[in-house]
Design a protein around this nucleic acid. Structure first.
Lengths: 146, 146
DNA sequence: GTAACTTAATTAGGCGGCTAATTAAATTAT
DNA sequence: ATAATTTAATTAGCCGCCTAATTAAGTTAC
């Protein structure tokens, strides 16, 4: 049968949840002038300042080109600086500016709010169950099969 | 504490799952020359041919502008046709072409494969639990609070 | 030491998605 | 009937993300 019970499929639910999460995320971050995705980059820079594009791309599981463009935009926005490495002149290292560092706190708040909204009304057990199921899905999707 | 256990947060898990799902989806659909998102539009057209941009946007929960551009691209790709409504000349109605109709079957396959990969190793009970949790998250995210 | 290869980034171009502004047609009110 | 308002789409311009092609700088091999 074609498209049986599509509305109840996990596929459909994930698609909707992903879209809503992205919108909510954009809404929460827009107060700091950020776009969804940029928060993750700032988070990783806050963890370890002065990383290369390659290192950031690998941590964020995103293409180099994506980060490269993103960094240029965020540098223009005054959130970070890009400096050529003196030893290996192929690589650049990215550093948070004061403004970028200020955003980190707001990102933390935004993430907390989104997490709370997502899990509103969930018991501890349910949260644990959800985390377990999502972790397994993550592994499934990462696997090479098919 | 800042960013406590970020890697285990539901936030992080969803972000990863969403990204992987999008990539997998693109991979599966690329065989039919489609991009993730276009499948949903074709699905709704297959359900009911000749819908307006507004109707499609509302079903897909997406902005009019998004659909408008998407339809132009997909019309150029030969997947559908846009025809001005004779009664209300503000509206256009969108119809599947033969090629577009052929894609629908492949989309169905792609969705089945993605669903299977996502839920690999899940028992029926676990699937039910997951569906329940995701449905509640969907409601939470749709609600106006904060 | 020069040629071949690898690595790090960037550029170009495309797609879905969004917001804001605009155009065009239909409807309502006066 | 004309003016004001609402509705349907489109356009312009951004963003994250992707792929493919290119540039520039190190390495390695001969």
């Amino acid at each position: 049968m074609k498209f049986k019970a599509q509305k109840e499929s996990v596929n459909y639910l994930f698609t909707q949840v992903c879209k809503l999460r992205r919108n909510q995320s954009n809404l929460l971050l827009s107060a700091s002038g950020l776009h969804a995705g940029q928060d993750v980059l700032l988070y990783y820079l806050d963890m370890h300042d002065g990383q290369t594009i390659t290192a950031l791309a690998e941590k964020m599981q995103v293409q180099y080109a994506t980060i490269s463009n993103m960094i240029d935009r965020m540098e223009a926005a005054g959130l970070l600086n890009k400096k050529k490495d003196e030893v290996d002149k192929r690589t650049s290292r990215v550093f948070l500016t004061g403004e970028g560092r200020q955003c980190v706190g707001k990102i933390n708040d935004a993430w907390r709010i989104l997490e709370a909204k997502t899990l509103e009304g969930f018991t501890s057990d349910e949260k644990i169950a959800l985390t377990g199921l999502l972790s397994r899905i993550l592994l499934n999707l990462k696997s090479q099969s098919v």
